[in-house]
């Protein structure tokens, strides 16, 4: 057993810090075209009650997809190759 392998709770501190950030100034890179920018300058499509799609202003690639799911959210960050927070 790898002694360095811990369960997810061990990352709670840094993850909690990373996932509580000022969204508008966070920087992303688009997985579609590589463009980097601030999330606050991306394009938002609010699909009534279905979800919210944040798209790259350069290529329309879906950077972040967010949907309500019963009493929670489902979030897909897969359209960003990174997010720089803080």
């Amino acid at each position: 057993m790898d002694e360095l392998r811990l369960d997810g709770n061990a990352a709670a501190g840094p993850l909690g810090e990373v996932f509580s950030f000022e969204v508008t100034t966070a920087e992303y890179a688009c997985r579609g075209c590589g463009r980097a920018g601030r999330l606050g300058e991306a394009m938002v499509y609010d699909v009534r009650d279905l979800g919210i799609i944040i798209r790259c202003p350069g290529c329309d690639y879906a950077l972040i997809r967010l949907a309500p799911n019963r009493d929670r959210y489902l979030v897909d960050l897969g359209g960003t190759s990174y997010l720089t927070t803080g």
Binding site: M43, Y45, V47, R48, L50, G51, I53, R55, D60, A62
Partner: peptide, 8 residues
């Protein structure tokens, strides 16, 4: 007829 679009 509501319009729902997830993009342009």
């Amino acid at each position: 007829f509501p319009v729902l679009s997830a993009g342009p």
